[in-house]
C-alpha cells in the first residue's frame, strides 16, 4: 500500500502554502498596478492581464489543488476542459468576427 501514498495524499507544509498564498497576493497587486499605474498600450495590456491571471490560476491548480503531485489524469481533465472552451470560443469567433453586419437585421 505504501507506494499508493505517492499520489493523492501529498501533505504540503505550511511554509509552502503561505508562499503560494503570498505569491498570489503579490501578483494581484502587480496586475492592478499594470492596469491603473503603468498603462501598457493595447494589446499588451490584455496580454499582461491574462498572463498574470493564468499564472495565478496555475499556482492555485498546481499547489492548492495539488495537481503538481496528483495523478496526471486529473491534470489532463483540467487541460481538456480548457481545450474545449478554447474550441468553443475559436469556432464561434469564426462567425462573429467575419460577419458583414455585426447583428444581422431580420
Amino acid at each position: 500500500m505504501s507506494d499508493n501514498h505517492k499520489h493523492g495524499h501529498h501533505i504540503s507544509t505550511p511554509a509552502q502554502l503561505w508562499a503560494v498564498g503570498g505569491a498570489l497576493i503579490v501578483l494581484t497587486i502587480v496586475t492592478v498596478l499594470f492596469a491603473r499605474v503603468i498603462h501598457l498600450p493595447y494589446p499588451f495590456n490584455i496580454i499582461t492581464a491574462l498572463a498574470i491571471a493564468f499564472t495565478k490560476a496555475g499556482l492555485v491548480a498546481a499547489f492548492f489543488m495539488n495537481l503538481y503531485w496528483d495523478v496526471k489524469f486529473n491534470l489532463m481533465l483540467l487541460i481538456a476542459s480548457l481545450a474545449f472552451f478554447i474550441l468553443m470560443v475559436a469556432i464561434t469567433l469564426l462567425d462573429t468576427l467575419y460577419r458583414i453586419e455585426v447583428v444581422p437585421s431580420f
Binding site: L87, M88, I91, L94, D95, T96, R99, I100, P104
Partner: peptide, 21 residues
C-alpha cells in the same frame, strides 16, 4: 461532434467563413 454544430445554422446569417468550415 464538437466541431460541427454550425451546420444547423447555414441559413441563419452566420459568416460565410464559418459556414464553409
Amino acid at each position: 461532434g464538437f466541431l460541427v454544430w454550425g451546420h444547423h445554422m447555414f441559413t441563419s446569417g452566420q459568416s460565410a467563413v464559418a459556414t464553409t468550415v
